[in-house]
C-alpha cells in the first residue's frame, strides 16, 4: 500500500515545493498566484464554510450517481435482453453524449430552479453513459461456451443471465463505476457553478468574483480529495462484492 501511494505523493510534494518557491521568489500577488502555504492557511481559516459547502456537493453527487446507476443498469439489462431495443436505444445513448452539457446546464437552472433536480440531471447525464456501456460490454463479454453450457443444463434466458452473464459483467462494471464516480464529482461542481444556493461549485464561483484565488484553490483541493476518496471507495466495494475477481487476477500474475 505504501509502495503504491509513495511515488505519486513524492511528485505532488515536488510540484508544491516548486510552486511555493516560484510564488514567493517572484513576489506574485496572492490574487494571481497564491502560494500553497497561503492556500492551506486561508483554507484552514475558512474550513467551516468550506465544509458547509462540501456537504451539499457530496449529497448531490450521491443522489445523482445513484440515479445514474439505476438508469445505466436498467438500460443495459433491457438492451441485453432485447435485440430490437438494442438497435433502437444504442444510437440514442451515443447521441445523448453529444449534448453539450455546458450549454444545457444553464437551461436546466431556468427550467428547474436552483434546487437539487438540475444537479442530479447533469450528474446523471454525464455519468450514466460509461456505466451503461461498461455493463453492456460486460454482458457481451460472457463466454459463448459458458452460455451453451447453461443452455445444455436447461437454463432459460433469465437463468443464463443471473448465473453467468451478470457475474461475468461485474468486473467491467467496476471499471465503469470508477470512471463514472470521478465524472460525478466534477459534474456536481459544474452544475453548482452555473447556479446553486450552496455547494463547492458556487463557493468557487463566489470566491473567484471576490478575488479570493487562494480560497478557490483550497476548494479545488477539497474537490480533488473527495474524488480520490470516492475512487478508492470503489475498490473497497469491489473487494466486498466480487472478492473472487482480485484473487483470481493476483493468482494469474503470480
Amino acid at each position: 500500500m505504501v509502495a503504491i501511494a509513495l511515488p505519486p505523493i513524492v511528485i505532488v510534494l515536488v510540484v508544491l515545493i516548486a510552486w511555493q518557491i516560484i510564488a514567493t521568489a517572484t513576489g506574485t500577488k496572492p490574487t494571481v498566484l497564491p502560494s500553497p502555504l497561503r492556500i492551506i492557511q486561508q483554507g484552514w481559516i475558512a474550513r467551516d464554510t468550506i465544509w458547509l459547502n462540501t456537504v451539499p456537493t457530496l449529497q448531490e453527487t450521491a443522489i445523482g450517481f445513484a440515479v445514474s446507476l439505476a438508469v445505466g443498469w436498467i438500460l443495459a439489462i433491457i438492451i441485453d435482453f432485447s435485440p430490437l431495443l438494442r438497435r433502437a436505444l444504442l444510437p440514442l445513448l451515443v447521441a445523448s453524449q453529444t449534448i453539450p452539457v455546458i450549454a444545457l446546464a444553464p437551461l436546466l437552472i431556468i427550467w428547474f430552479g436552483f434546487g437539487l433536480l438540475p444537479k442530479v440531471l447533469v450528474i446523471a447525464l454525464v455519468t450514466f453513459f460509461p456505466v451503461a456501456v461498461g455493463l453492456i460490454d460486460g454482458f457481451n463479454s460472457t463466454d459463448r461456451e459458458a452460455t451453451n453450457l447453461l443452455r445444455s443444463m436447461g437454463a432459460n434466458r433469465w437463468k443464463q443471465f443471473t448465473y453467468v452473464r451478470l457475474p461475468s459483467a461485474l468486473p467491467a462494471f467496476f471499471t465503469a463505476l470508477r470512471i463514472g464516480i470521478t465524472y460525478a464529482v466534477t459534474g456536481a461542481i459544474f452544475a453548482e457553478y452555473v447556479g446553486a444556493i450552496n455547494g463547492l461549485g458556487i463557493y468557487m464561483s463566489m470566491m473567484k468574483n471576490s478575488f479570493r484565488t487562494d480560497l478557490v484553490l483550497a476548494a479545488v483541493f477539497v474537490t480533488a480529495a473527495v474524488s480520490i476518496c470516492l475512487f478508492l471507495l470503489t475498490f473497497v466495494v469491489e473487494r466486498l462484492i466480487i472478492p473472487w475477481h482480485s484473487k483470481e487476477r493476483r493468482s494469474r500474475r503470480g
Partner: peptide, 29 residues
C-alpha cells in the same frame, strides 16, 4: 436438453463460485 449432460472442451468453472458450488451448478439450474 434434459437427457444429456454436456462437458465442453474448456472446463468453464466460474471464478465466482467455489468448486462445490460449480459442481452443483447443473442441479441448481
Amino acid at each position: 436438453s434434459e437427457h444429456f449432460a454436456y462437458m465442453p472442451q474448456k472446463d468453464l468453472l466460474f471464478p465466482w463460485r467455489t468448486i462445490l458450488e460449480n459442481t452443483a451448478l447443473g442441479l441448481e439450474v
